[in-house]
């Protein structure tokens, strides 16, 4: 059987559907447990619903971008595997790179730097599945070994020095932001325009919330700011010059 015969076979669809149901069920169990515990320690239903609504609204835009990646992956991996890969670990950039590495290793001929998949056999497809899965599995090994210890350390610190724990927590996020924002700001490309528009929208929204007391706006501030930042360069390109 050829590469694309396997890539669109019913068995692959069935396996992918089982996998996606598993991941969705895991998310459902995680949410149910957290929700129950949240109510127990004093959060209200209303507060939790606000978080759920804000998270769902925010997630829509990046999820559509993930979907755009589906159309890049599908010609290489077929529909079911692309569907699976974008529903679990990794990101579109990783998936494309991993697929290329795997196809190369499977000995699939390259034409102008692009794998000639049409002539590849079914074993190249199976090898691609393995390589893409194994390549990014590190986190799935390290998290069970390290994450509990890291979190317990933070809990002990809350007991010992609550001030430093809170400050320390903010240092992680600030460093991540600094490292990811630096190439955008210093790169002086169109990305900086998107960055500035996102930042300006957030600043305006924060000011509006402070001045008017419209706390409900907090739930949508990140989504609205991101949307402004995403659309600003696109709209700018449409302005006749």
């Amino acid at each position: 059987m050829g590469y694309f015969d396997l890539a669109s076979h019913g068995l692959v669809y069935a396996a992918v559907i089982v996998g996606i149901i598993y991941v969705a069920a895991l998310a459902a169990i995680t949410m149910r447990k957290s929700w129950k515990r949240a109510l127990k320690i004093g959060f209200t239903q209303d507060q939790l619903k606000r978080v759920a609504k804000a998270s769902a609204v925010y997630s829509l835009i990046p999820a559509v971008a993930v979907l755009a990646g589906f159309f890049t992956l599908a010609p290489v991996l077929g529909i079911p595997l692309s569907w699976w890969r974008l529903s679990v670990i990794g990101n579109t950039a990783y998936e494309l790179m991993a697929a290329n590495v795997a196809l190369n290793a499977a000995g699939v001929a390259q034409e102008h730097g692009v794998a000639n998949i049409a002539g590849a056999g079914g074993s190249a497809y199976v090898l691609t599945m393995y390589v893409m899965a194994i390549g990014i599995m590190g986190g799935m090994v390290f998290a069970p070994l390290l994450s509990k210890k890291i979190q317990k350390g933070a809990f002990r610190l809350i007991e010992r020095d609550r001030r430093w724990n809170a400050l320390r927590g903010s240092v992680y996020m600030a460093t991540i932001l600094l490292v990811f924002a630096a190439p955008i700001v210093l790169g002086l490309s169109i990305a900086l325009f998107a960055f500035a528009a996102g930042a300006a929208s957030m600043a305006v929204l924060k000011l509006v919330i402070r001045k008017t007391g419209a706390e409900w706006l907090n739930e949508f501030a990140l989504t609205l700011s991101m949307l402004s930042g995403v659309l600003a360069p696109v709209l700018w390109a449409l302005v006749p010059k």
Binding site: L177, G198, P233
Partner: peptide
């Protein structure tokens, strides 16, 4: 083009938020 602006726009908003 909009999809490639998601990360810069997001980080702009997050930096102000932080």
């Amino acid at each position: 083009a909009a999809a490639s602006n998601i990360l810069p726009a997001l980080f702009g908003a997050l930096v102000v938020n932080a």
